[in-house]
């Protein structure tokens, strides 16, 4: 690696981290409005800087490879919150599992079915299967089922933002005040961004959302790839 590349790496890593810092400050200022999710703001700022500095996106990706690599260990680290939730998992009961299974199956299947009806490309349909699991799970699984990691990340984030924004009016419209119902639905359908929204709604909603998010993520990721390899083999 020459000095030029090394300098570029350091510069773009620092730039990305700074943009992320600004994005976090924005999110805090705007009281966690889901539309100004740190990823959305950071991507906007970095894109602007790439245009200004006339840098290719592929170059940017190779300079910031360290961040991308860290996603692997970060996915492994998700074992910690799952372990923390274990007592709740045991106490969840059949009804809770039915609720999570319903959302976990119907949200992606309905989305895929929509794309199928509109005759969208197969890659998009497959990638859409991952829309309601959190981003690290979606990205690591996308390749395994013939989807695209980049698209998976975007679908997941947009799904989360839509879920978080719409949840208040939806729950009001349907007169749902039960903390368990709100939490399980948000965590299952809208993963981490929905969970962030759930945290604002109170402790019980948040706990249920984290639980639902972990279960949906793990189960989807463990079931989908073997299912698809079976599908392809036949």
């Amino acid at each position: 690696m020459d000095l030029q590349t090394f300098t570029n790496m350091i510069v773009w890593l620092v730039v990305t981290v700074c943009c992320y810092g600004i994005a976090l400050a924005c999110a805090k200022k705007l009281r966690l409005n889901p539309l100004c999710h740190p990823i959305v703001v950071t991507v906007a700022l970095v894109s602007l800087l790439l245009v200004v500095s006339d840098t290719q996106v592929t170059q940017f990706q190779s300079y910031t490879y360290l961040l991308h690599w860290l996603l692997g260990p970060a996915t492994v680290a998700l074992a910690v919150p799952i372990h923390n939730q274990w007592d709740r998992v045991k106490k969840l009961g059949v009804n809770g599992w039915i609720s999570i299974a319903f959302g976990g199956v119907f949200a992606p299947v309905l989305a895929c079915f929509t794309l199928y009806i509109f005759d969208a490309p197969m890659t998009l349909q497959l990638t859409m299967m991952l829309k309601s699991v959190s981003t690290p799970f979606a990205m690591s699984t996308a390749d395994a089922i013939g989807g695209v990691g980049e698209l998976a990340a975007v679908f997941v984030i947009v799904t989360g933002i839509v879920g978080a924004i719409m949840s208040d009016s939806l729950f009001r419209l349907l007169k749902i005040s039960n903390a368990n119902a709100q939490g399980l639905a948000l965590g299952t359908v809208a993963h981490a961004i929905g969970t962030a929204k759930a945290i604002q709604k109170g402790e019980q909603v948040a706990a249920m959302a984290v639980l639902a998010m972990c279960i949906t993520g793990i189960v989807t990721v463990l079931i989908l790839p073997p299912l698809f390899s079976l599908f392809i083999a036949v």
Partner: peptide, 15 residues
């Protein structure tokens, strides 16, 4: 890693 996972998605989302 967990609290700043959003930062780790940036290179991919840019793509």
């Amino acid at each position: 890693l967990l609290s700043h996972m959003s930062l780790l998605f940036i290179p991919v989302v840019m793509g």
